[in-house]
Nucleic acid binder design. Sequence first.
DNA 1: TTTTATTAATGTTGATTTTACACTTACTAA
DNA 2: TTAGTAAGTGTAAAATCAACATTAATAAAA
Lengths: 229, 229
Amino acid sequence: MLNSYSSADKVLLAVDCIIFGFDHQGLKILLIKRDFEPERGKWSLMGGFLKRDEILDDAAIRILNTYTGLHDIYMEQLHAYSEIDRDPVDRTISVSYYALINIENHNEELIKNYHAEWFSIADAPNLIFDHNEMVQHAIRRLRYRTSIKPIGFELLPEKFTMRQLLELYEAILSKELDKRNFISKINSLEILNKLDEKDMQSSRKGSYLYTFNKEKYEEKLLNDFVLNL
Amino acid sequence: MLNSYSSADKVLLAVDCIIFGFDHQGLKILLIKRDFEPERGKWSLMGGFLKRDEILDDAAIRILNTYTGLHDIYMEQLHAYSEIDRDPVDRTISVSYYALINIENHNEELIKNYHAEWFSIADAPNLIFDHNEMVQHAIRRLRYRTSIKPIGFELLPEKFTMRQLLELYEAILSKELDKRNFISKINSLEILNKLDEKDMQSSRKGSYLYTFNKEKYEEKLLNDFVLNL
DNA sequence: TTTTATTAATGTTGATTTTACACTTACTAA
DNA sequence: TTAGTAAGTGTAAAATCAACATTAATAAAA
């Protein structure tokens, strides 16, 4: 008798994505200006509804792809939000995901079409519904992840300087780090390849460029560790 | 126009609870034998459907209360599970919660009526749907929580011995801990009150009983720390 | 009453990790 | 040639962690 759940209430299930990027200005999130009611014209996370034949992870991937054109992005489920009136239209439960992307890689055109914009974490506008809370939650999770997994591959360009990596960690943890201690800790992880090439933008002397050593990096991703920065 | 979501699919939303307890045999979970189809007679987590006028946290509290009679229990949301056919009856997304309870406190009668039973983590039976995965996930989360928050208040009786606390941590982390190092680390947190009273069950000498210093304990709960055990 | 058996309680030391800290180098542009 | 700028590098003191064994208290048995 496959109808024993008939008395239970069905609800809408949404997925909202907190998309993190990083550039010289610091940690950023990608937001869109809603072009439908309610709250048309207000800023919002990127979201959508779960489809009947879709799992949550795929819905998150679909939504990210719709607004950025990106594939194969690191995403992680965060939390389900269920306040009764969180969405005034209909009872909607939202499951949030966060994604880490290389800010240079997204599709500019899509971003424009959707009235999307990157905002620094610090001066992001007020968001609709409970999206502010979702963002705060995502930042906490990202900070935690930083302490047990290496980070950077997803948020930095292919080639990057030590300073960029340092500033990324500083942005995520929102605290200053000691340059020498940071470098020696990162080096002890052995996840970087030092290139012969230098980046000449930042100084006359130029600073060496690095890439991630993908094998080592992924090995570290598998086994949690504690990285005290 | 409050009908713009009309095209989206609605789904059933369930809540499943992983209920942890602890006694001299170690870490346990509370399971019930399902008395309805599908999978009648199989072991399962305690679950139920989200009601239209209810938030997820409250649904979890309600479900826990239904099966144990307990109120005011530490619970934390874990994860949303959404595989298409995870429940063969109808498309159901389940949000899992885990709870920590004092195993002595539950209502025996309720447990009996529902055919519920405590199982050691190690030899719990196979569970329906994706409930095994939920349990594994909950154990990982519990382990993590142990490393950044004090634990015990919720799982131990009011008065307990150092040995009990040690064994609780050993059960959660599933590794042996050095007794002296453990005691000095716990003492350095200053979250325990040592009583004049002794427990005479365990030895001829008797061992001192402790209670948690609620204020200090909750202060530590607020501020994450790292407890390397 | 003495002995025995059992678990509780307790501190130290060496090893490791973390933190704090400042000068020299390399290069370009003036 | 000089001046200016960020890059690159090492050490020592402090804190924390990990390993380890003996004595104390008591009840039960002899």
